[in-house]
């Protein structure tokens, strides 16, 4: 097993603590949806390097459909997984925990791609299984949302589903 184990209870406590802190500093409303979208966009952009178009409008469009796909996927998960993902997203979008846990100092909208990639890489190989599983969730949600979309199939040579009738 990996070294010191932070179990889900600890994760939840951290999540709740983060949320609570957020409430105390009075940024709940401001930090909500926009910041989460910026966070998911930045993380998706780092995960999808090599697939994203260099053309700005196409890139923006592709990222926004990916973020929408991630949110749709989360909405279809059972409640216990939705609350874990909500905890993870809260931790990531709140600036203190973003800096402390992810090591990303700039706000998500301004974060450099290399910094986001470095954070993902550090979680991927973290000795804390909690961070490894959080990386796994982001990996699966974002790549799943991307490759679910037919417009991204040509780039990998997938001809799409056969015409049956």
């Amino acid at each position: 097993m990996t070294a010191p184990v932070i179990d889900r209870r600890t994760f939840l406590k951290t999540g709740f603590a983060g949320t609570l802190l957020l409430a105390c500093v009075g940024h709940v409303a401001a930090a909500s949806d926009d910041e989460e979208a910026s966070m998911l966009t930045a993380i998706s952009a780092a995960l999808l390097v090599g697939m994203l178009s260099g053309q700005p409008a196409a890139r923006t469009e592709a990222l926004s459909s990916t973020v929408a796909g991630v949110r749709q996927a989360v909405a279809g998960l059972p409640p216990h997984l939705q609350s874990e993902i909500a905890d993870l997203f809260s931790l990531l979008r709140f600036s203190l925990t973003r800096r402390f846990l992810a090591g990303v100092s700039a706000p998500w909208a301004e974060a450099r791609e290399e910094d986001v990639a470095a954070f993902l890489e550090s979680w991927r190989h973290s000795r804390f299984s909690l961070l490894q599983t959080a990386y796994g969730a982001l990996h699966d949600l974002v790549l799943g949302a991307w490759y679910a979309r037919p417009e991204h199939w040509a780039a990998i040579g997938y001809p799409g589903t056969p015409e049956v009738f």
């Binding site: 090599g50 990996h139 199939w153 990998i156």
Partner: peptide
């Protein structure tokens, strides 16, 4: 595509190359 991409390790350029 979804089953394969989410199962495959890594991300970014290395993952894209494998895809």
């Amino acid at each position: 595509p979804v089953l394969y991409s989410t199962t495959l390790q890594g991300f970014g350029a290395q993952h894209a190359d494998k895809m």
